[in-house]
C-alpha cells in the first residue's frame, strides 16, 4: 500500500482511538485546523470533540493535564506542535512525568504519550528548528522514540501507548511528506531495539530520525567508491540499544555517528562514550561525528544547510575513518 509518513501516523492514531476507549488526542489545533502538519486532519469529524481535543495555547497546562489524565486511568496522546514549544512544558515533562513513578515509590506510573515534530530544514529559523530529542534522552524515566520509517510511524504509537511509562515520540518535520510502501497489515512494532537499515562491513553509520535518510544516501554514495557502509537506525534514544551499537562496531571496527543535534553534551557524545566503554579495542579508528553546527539554526537556506548535517559530510566522515587505501578502486 502506497502511503506517506503523515498518513501512517494518522492511521496509528485512528487505530488507537478506535481500539481503546481510554485513548484520546489533545493538543493545539489538532481538531478544527487538522493538525499543524495535517496529521490529524479529518479525525475530529470522525471521532468528535471528546476524543480529539483542541487545547488553548497552554503547553504546560495541557501536557500537565495529560499527565493527570494518565494518572487517572486514561491513555492520552498529547501532541505538542513542535519540540521548540515543548520547552514551555519542560517542567511538567521532567519534574512530573519522568519523576512521579520513582518519587512515589512505584505507586503512580504515568502512561502518557507525547508526540512532537522536531528538526530543521524548512527555513523557519532558530525558534522553530531545534532538535532536542537527544536532550530529552538525558532524562531517566522517559522513553524517547524517533520513528524514521513508515513502519515505525505506523507501529510505534501503539506500543508506546501500551507502555506503562511516559513515552515521547519525535517526528522529524521533513519526514511527513515521505512516501513509500507500507504492508497492508502493518501494525505495532517493538520500541526497544535499533534496526540495521543497510548491511555493510567497512564502517558503521549510526543515526536516527531525519538523519537516517541522509545516512542511507551517503552509504549509497560510498558503495560507489567500493566502501561497504552499514547503517544502524537507533529508533529509540532512551533506552539506547547499546548491544546493537557495540555489535555493529565490533564487526566493522569503524563508526560514524550522525545527529542533527548539537555536538556538545549530546546523544552523539553518549553513543561515542558507550563505544569507547564497550568496544574500544575493536576500533581501528577514532569515532567520527557529524552533528549540527553549534549555532541557533539560521533562516537563509545556504546558512541552514551549512548548519545541518549533509550527505557529503557523512561521506567525508566515513572516508576519514577508513584506511587510506579504502575507497580507491582495487
Amino acid at each position: 500500500m502506497k502511503t506517506t509518513y503523515r498518513a501512517a501516523v494518522r492511521e496509528a492514531i485512528r487505530e488507537a482511538i478506535s481500539q481503546d476507549e481510554r485513548v484520546f488526542l489533545m493538543g493545539e489545533d489538532v481538531g478544527r485546523y487538522g493538525g499543524c502538519y495535517a496529521v490529524s486532519k479529518g479525525l475530529l469529524e470522525e471521532f468528535g470533540e471528546d476524543r480529539i481535543r483542541d487545547t488553548p495555547l497552554s503547553e504546560s497546562g495541557f501536557v500537565g493535564a495529560g499527565i493527570g489524565a494518565a494518572l487517572g486511568g486514561m491513555r492520552p496522546i498529547v501532541e505538542v506542535m513542535t519540540v521548540n514549544f515543548s520547552l514551555l512544558a519542560l517542567d511538567q515533562i521532567v519534574n512530573n512525568a519522568a519523576t512521579l513513578l520513582h518519587m512515589s515509590g512505584g505507586a503512580f506510573n504515568v502512561p502518557i504519550v507525547i508526540r512532537m515534530a522536531t528538526g530543521g530544514g524548512r527555513q523557519v529559523a532558530a525558534q522553530h528548528s531545534r532538535s532536542l530529542e537527544g536532550w530529552y534522552a538525558h532524562i531517566p524515566g522517559l522513553k524517547i522514540l524517533a520513528p524514521a520509517t513508515l513502519e515505525d510511524a505506523r507501529g510505534m504509537l501503539w506500543t508506546a501507548l501500551e507502555d506503562p511509562d511516559p513515552v515521547l515520540i519525535f517526528e522529524h518535520v521533513l519526514l511527513y511528506t515521505m512516501e513509500g510502501e507500507l504492508a497492508e497489515g502493518a501494525g505495532p512494532v517493538p520500541i526497544d531495539r535499533a534496526a540495521t537499515r543497510r548491511r555493510g562491513s567497512d564502517v558503521s553509520i549510526i543515526t536516527y530520525g531525519g538523519s537516517l535518510h541522509k545516512s542511507l544516501e551517503a552509504a549509497e554514495r560510498l558503495a560507489g567508491e567500493d566502501v561497504s557502509a552499514e547503517v544502524l537506525d537507533l529508533r529509540t534514544l532512551r533506552p539506547l540499544d547499546t548491544e546493537a551499537i557495540l555489535e555493529t562496531v565490533t564487526r566493522t571496527n569503524r563508526a560514524v555517528i550522525v545527529d542533527e543535534g548539537w555536538r556538545s553534551g549530546s546523544i552523539s557524545a553518549e553513543i561515542s562514550a558507550r563505544i569507547t566503554e564497550g568496544a574500544f579495542y575493536e576500533l581501528d579508528a577514532p569515532v567520527a561525528r557529524v552533528c549540527g553546527e553549534e549555532v541557533p539554526t539560521p533562516y537563509p537556506k545556504h546558512l541552514e544547510d551549512a548548519a545541518l548535517p549533509q550527505v557529503e559530510e557523512i561521506v567525508e566522515a566515513a572516508r576519514s575513518v577508513l584506511p587510506r587505501t579504502a575507497g580507491v578502486r582495487r
Binding site: Q127, P300, L303
Partner: peptide, 16 residues
C-alpha cells in the same frame, strides 16, 4: 529575503 543587509543579517527572516 535572508540577505545580510537585513535588519537581523537575514538570520531570522519574517518572524524575527
Amino acid at each position: 529575503f535572508g540577505k545580510v543587509e537585513g535588519c537581523a543579517r537575514g538570520r531570522g527572516g519574517s518572524m524575527h
